[in-house]
Design a protein around this nucleic acid. Sequence first.
DNA 1: CTTTTTTGCACAATCGATGGTGCAATAACT
DNA 2: AGTTATTGCACCATCGATTGTGCAAAAAAG
Lengths: 352, 352
Amino acid sequence: MADISKKKATIYDLSILSGASASTVSAVLNGSWRKRRIKEATAQLIQNLANEHGYTANLQARGLRSSRSGLVGLLLPVHDNRYFSSMAQSFEAQVRSRGQCPLVVSGCRDPDEERQVVETLISYSIDELFIAGATDPDGVHKVCEKAGLKHVNIDLPGTLAPSVISDNYEGARMLTQAIIERAQEDGPLSPDDLYLFGGRNDHASHERIRGFRDVKRALLGADPDVCIQPTGYSPAMTARAFEAFYEGHGKLPRTFFVNSSINLEGLMRFLALHPHETFADIIVGCYDYDPFGSFLPFPVFMIRQDGEAMITKGFAILDADRRPPITHLVRPTLVPPRTALTGPLDALKDIG
Amino acid sequence: MADISKKKATIYDLSILSGASASTVSAVLNGSWRKRRIKEATAQLIQNLANEHGYTANLQARGLRSSRSGLVGLLLPVHDNRYFSSMAQSFEAQVRSRGQCPLVVSGCRDPDEERQVVETLISYSIDELFIAGATDPDGVHKVCEKAGLKHVNIDLPGTLAPSVISDNYEGARMLTQAIIERAQEDGPLSPDDLYLFGGRNDHASHERIRGFRDVKRALLGADPDVCIQPTGYSPAMTARAFEAFYEGHGKLPRTFFVNSSINLEGLMRFLALHPHETFADIIVGCYDYDPFGSFLPFPVFMIRQDGEAMITKGFAILDADRRPPITHLVRPTLVPPRTALTGPLDALKDIG
DNA sequence: CTTTTTTGCACAATCGATGGTGCAATAACT
DNA sequence: AGTTATTGCACCATCGATTGTGCAAAAAAG
């Protein structure tokens, strides 16, 4: 309050002001003063001075000394996607409730970038790292390992560190079954009427494709390879795949499974180029939940992955004494069309 | 590579290995070695050793000494929203291209939380701060000021620091005009047919409401107060407002302006509770762009705010010598219904 | 072969906080 | 009163990097 001094107060400043030594000031301000048998009155005095001068600890100095920083990292593939940004939101809340500081960064789905970003985080002595949706979790693991950094994989599993991921197989089964049943309400469905778009060479895609194919085979009797169109995680490539199908067939498949909301954006790009009416009767399943995606002008079944539960589980794992490289599955939920779920935003204060 | 040592190498380790002093090692590794007249051969030797041992600087130590951390902060209201998460994505890219480390955190639209989060960031000696959508920019400003931290407001302006914001008035005018014209295609529009939902007591809302009212009065001749329904930035409250209107009128307004995509989520919650067909003829304007929101089963005009341009402008301001508290406007664009725009994701590598 | 200049580097203080250790002063006992 | 315990705190090394300063050895100049 009172001081207009440009520089922030340090324990040395308070040490002079209070007449106590710097170590006493430090002990008082970091809470270890009872253990160090500082008189209550001394502590009070110092705390008052600290308040008066708006003292806050220099966390770099503390981190340097204690080789802990209070920073917890979350490595994301990308930010601008409801699944990951909502995960970031939950992550922040949980980290802050533990008195630490969240550090959310993206690796842009690039293995080199991922490793480099993690190197940077390590240079800041972060205490723990959540690796979400990493292209190369084991590569990142090695970097962490070398630095002795506790870490856990989220969303995409590694073989070397504990992982918490969606039950992609089960989720894909639920979703596939839901869209098949819905499509069959409009008449019999042939195997050629059911496609899958999106996904690439990662664990999640494999499991989803496996779930899709298993259910499709069981319910429709066949499962031709041509119906699987892996397009990567890119709206542009996905749009191209829809366009290609459309050129070949003059329509879209009656029913299809879209591997993620990013791929669903590819569908939007396709739709933007074609009249609405042509596609009024498609049935879509999307392996991700988006509140607006759920209300598109055709039925969209969605899978909501429980990012919050994954983060919670991740912390539980990091808190445990032993951390074997086991993969934990978190069950996602099927979201029928036209559903508006609540999210982490709803926990915020509503100020009119 | 070769070393299995648990601890990270320091300049002292390299100093011993190379036979040079720690200060020489430091100079070599931070690039200042030419200035310090270190022999090229010595530099080479040390650099090789550094590579061999995977040396990376301890950035906390560097930050402590130089009172610069290489961290650049972005304070966001929330993550899980396309506008802000896409801003985070652009921010990250720009910060990294400048060789610094992005630190994205949310303040949850709570003035106290915002200030406290910034205090934390300051404790990590961040170099610069982007304050986006802060509830209380001037409060945050004072905290920064006291710490001598360069900062700029984004999206919501303050009076004490330079600001870069959307031209909300112009955007609102464009949007209002677009939905009025579109609605009039279906027949004459009375002032009671055009509402505004969402927004609260902040600069952006004021400007948008002003733009809305000005255009409405000009085109429809009147502008009753009852048509303005500020519901805060909360899906739940917005849904309640729609519900209330519906109870009173047995329908929604023919046309309405929704203040943000967060409020648009409130509309989704309302729609989820009512049969689709009832609302097939509404015309909506949303002051925010969302790729799925654009394809809802009724016309949705959207405003895309140029987050990337704002960040760029923000850096330009921070780089300038003088930083008067001027507000810079960035023009948003009107997005007609059924439009899929590209975003920062498209800059990423597409790996199939 | 001196003297001056330049080159190449080592030394040591410093950033702010932490925590082990040691030592007075006071209190609690014989 | 003399001894032992306890209380309350100061001192100092330390974390890893940065940087101003100083001083040999080598090179250039005279």
